[in-house]
Structures are given as structure tokens and as C-alpha cells.
């Protein structure tokens, strides 16, 4: 606890000034407006009409809201553990300086550079449709594959695979964190005769916890708001049979396709509460396992 070095609190606000100004002008106004809209019937053309808790009551009775919550939770719970372990695994492998490693890192990062381009939609269909690559490989083993991307019970998994495929950002953050770990700790560990796996669990992982924590929080926040994968692959409908109807996609359909911006805002605030609760819990648990040097 050496924070007394900076003992003039007003200086902190100077450093925060740009952020505070931005918060007040670009962020708080939209947030407050959306909160207000959530209590209104607002079709984006005529002035909002106050209806109190009406939107929230409608949400409670809307089966598609519940469906989209279940789809989103499955996406979060199934996607994140894989994405993060995958990113960490590759970061550790590609950490060491050796021939070609820079190219490898870039190559593994490439899918993430691709983002949500329209081309992804076509690529994914080429892979997972009835006559796609996966099924062609399966047919070599005489297995008849299904139409992965268009069947209600598998479509979501192709989107989860897409999110795992684009693991690059997490990997880069892990790589940055790994470089912060002093090499001499490993040397000391090796002298003690610890194996690679043991070194990973006794040195790497504990020291990397701030980055693990960061990635976990950020991927959770982003995954709950996932929109683009389903938007580009299902054409913005959540098909087949709502199996890829992400919460944010349903919110978008309400707001932009059906001009129910009031309802969409109510949905947004419910999502905010859900994410805040989950993130709050993570921060609470995080205190126990995240290692900070202060």
C-alpha cells in the first residue's frame, strides 16, 4: 500500500477529466434517455408515450424473451470456457521466442482480424452446410452428416465455434501478460526440479490471474451482448426456430425492425442488470484469486 505517493486527490480528477466529459456528453445522456424510453411506448417517429412498467410486464410474458435468454446463457456458458482455455493454451505455447513464432502468432490471430465481415456468413455455410467441408470429411468415414448450420439443435454450436475460432484478442492479452512474468522465477522453479506442467500451475497461472480475470470479465460482458454472429449468419432472424436468437438480436429486431424502441430499451436495461449482477459476482470472487502487486 504505497499509494500515499500520490496524495493530492484533485489531481486524480484532472486525469479523469476527458473521461468525465465524455461520460456526461456521449454516454450518460444516451443511457438516461434509454432508461426513460424503457418506460414508454416509443416508435422512433412520434414522441415517447409513458406507459410505466408496461414494457417490463410484456417482457415477462414474452416467450421469445425467455427463449433468447436461454440461447444467450448457453452461448456464454459453453463458449467462454473453451475460448479462454484455447487462447491461454496457445498463448503459452507461442510465448517463447523461437523461429517462426511471430508468424504463427499472426496466423492464429488472423481469424479475429476478420471480425463480422459479410464474408464470414458465406464461409461458415461452406463449412457447416449439408454439402460442406465437415460433412465431406465425415463421408470419408462413411458417416452421413446433417445440416449443422440450419438445424435447430446444432445451429447455435456453429456460432459457438465461430466465437472460439476468433479467440485472438484474448490470446494477445494473455501473451502481453505472460511477458510480464519475470523469467528468473521459472529458472528458480526449474532448479527445484518442477516440470513444465507444474511450473504452469505454480508460477504462470497465479501470476497471470489479473489477465485471466480481465479476459473473463470482458468476454462475459461481450458474450452477453453477442449480436454479430447471429446477425450475419441467420440473416438477422435468429433462425432456425429461434435457436440462434441472441438476446441482443431480439432486442434489435424489436427496436429496428418493429419500431418498438421502448420495448427494446426495457430489454436493454434487463440485460444490463443481468450482466452487472454476473460481473459483480465475478469481481467479488475475483478478490479471492486475483493476484495484484500492491
Amino acid at each position: 500500500m504505497k499509494r500515499h505517493v500520490f496524495n493530492k486527490p484533485w489531481e486524480a480528477y484532472l486525469f479523469l477529466l476527458p473521461w468525465l466529459v465524455g461520460l456526461l456528453s456521449f454516454t450518460i445522456i444516451p443511457i438516461i434517455m434509454s432508461l426513460y424510453f424503457s418506460f414508454t411506448r416509443y416508435d422512433m417517429a412520434n414522441s415517447p408515450l409513458w406507459i410505466g412498467m408496461g414494457n417490463y410486464m410484456t417482457m415477462y410474458k414474452d416467450p421469445r424473451v425467455w427463449k433468447s435468454i436461454s440461447v444467450t446463457f448457453r452461448y456464454v456458458l459453453l463458449g467462454i470456457p473453451f475460448q479462454l482455455s484455447f487462447a491461454l493454451f496457445l498463448a503459452v505455447i507461442l510465448k517463447k521466442q523461437r523461429a517462426g513464432v511471430r508468424i504463427y502468432r499472426a496466423v492464429y490471430y488472423l481469424p479475429s482480424l476478420f471480425g463480422g465481415s459479410v464474408a464470414v456468413a458465406l464461409l461458415w455455410r461452406q463449412i457447416f452446410n449439408k454439402e460442406g467441408i465437415i460433412n465431406r470429411l465425415l463421408s470419408l468415414l462413411s458417416i452421413e452428416g446433417k445440416n449443422w448450420i440450419a438445424s435447430p439443435d446444432t445451429a447455435l454450436y456453429t456460432l459457438i465455434l465461430l466465437s472460439i475460432w476468433q479467440f485472438g484478442s484474448s490470446m494477445v492479452i494473455f501473451l502481453g501478460g505472460l511477458q510480464q512474468i519475470p523469467q528468473d522465477l521459472y529458472e528458480a522453479g526449474s532448479i527445484d526440479g518442477a516440470g513444465k506442467v507444474r511450473l504452469f500451475f505454480t508460477i504462470t497461472l497465479p501470476l497471470l490471474t489479473p489477465m485471466v480475470f480481465f479476459n473473463l470479465i470482458m468476454t462475459i460482458i461481450n458474450a452477453f451482448q453477442a449480436f454479430t454472429p447471429s446477425y450475419i449468419i441467420s440473416g438477422g432472424t435468429g433462425s432456425p426456430v429461434d435457436s440462434t436468437l441472441f438476446y441482443t438480436l431480439y432486442l434489435y429486431i424489436n427496436g429496428f425492425k418493429q419500431f418498438k424502441m421502448g420495448y427494446a430499451s426495457a430489454m436493454a436495461w434487463v440485460l444490463l442488470v443481468i450482466i452487472a449482477a454476473v460481473t459483480g459476482v465475478m469481481f467479488g470472487i475475483g478478490k479471492k484469486w486475483v493476484y495484484y502487486d500492491d
Partner: peptide, 15 residues
């Protein structure tokens, strides 16, 4: 069948 219809619902003309 349903899956085929869904698969091609977002296809552009060429596809």
C-alpha cells in the same frame, strides 16, 4: 426439407 430451406434463406442469387 426444413433445414435446406433455412440454409438457403439467406443465400444470395448466385448461391
Amino acid at each position: 426439407d426444413a433445414a435446406t430451406t433455412t440454409e438457403y434463406s439467406t443465400a444470395t442469387l448466385e448461391d
